[in-house]
């Protein structure tokens, strides 16, 4: 397969969140601001990249019957790496993402790519696939985070859009805004997908 196609499919055509509807929990849970969304997206990309590379390297050593538990252990190891690193160097982000960092381990996206792609393809393609899917996930989370931050706090990445405005439409920072914003972004992506197809 053309590697560029392999990379770019995750961005719009097969966007993990808006088209495949994978990993909805972190996508809704952490996107109270654009920065949190980006942080979560990159953390997931790292786990995805690491697990896809390792799975594709050792796919011939793992007996078929125990492959799922083996994948889980590999993924959980990378999640622990992210968890400890983030706690040490980015404590603020770690606090903001909270429970959702250890929960990367149950993100269906990571498991799905290991099972559907990395366990069948060579290492290089798996790494590219992981990067594409991971960045697509990060893009999705940053978009939803930006939308919620712009509407909810009139700011983006912490920069105020309207000087002097203190709080925006609070509902977008709270839970309902996540669901509603996500719903409308899926409509947008359905439209984009139809246009590019």
């Amino acid at each position: 397969m053309n590697q560029w196609k392999n990379f770019s499919k995750g961005l719009i055509k097969d966007n993990p969140v808006y088209i495949l509807l994978l990993g909805l929990c972190p996508a809704l849970g952490v996107t109270t601001s654009a920065f949190n969304g980006l942080g979560m997206g990159l953390a997931t990309t790292f786990v995805l990249l690491g697990s896809n590379i390792v799975v594709s390297l050792i796919k011939n050593l793992i007996p078929d019957k125990v492959r799922i538990p083996s994948f889980i252990v590999i993924i959980a190891s990378f999640v622990t790496i992210v968890q400890l690193t983030m706690e040490a160097y980015m404590p603020d982000l770690f606090d903001a993402l909270g429970l959702f960092i250890p929960l990367i381990v149950v993100n269906c996206l990571v498991m799905g790519r290991a099972e559907a792609f990395a366990s069948k393809k060579d290492t290089f393609s798996s790494a590219i696939d992981a990067l594409g899917m991971g960045l697509g996930f990060a893009l999705a989370l940053t978009m939803l985070g930006s939308l919620r931050e712009i509407l909810g706090a009139y700011s983006i990445f912490g920069f105020k859009l309207i000087p002097g405005a203190t709080d925006g439409m609070l509902v977008f920072v709270l839970a309902p805004g996540a669901f509603i914003g996500m719903g409308y972004l899926i409509i947008l992506f359905n439209y984009l997908k139809k246009k590019t197809a």
């Binding site: 839970a175 309902p176 719903g183 409308y184």
Partner: peptide, 12 residues
């Protein structure tokens, strides 16, 4: 999915 998410938002 989109309509379901909006409904979930209203429920929230």
């Amino acid at each position: 999915a989109p309509a379901a998410l909006v409904v979930a938002g209203i429920l929230a």
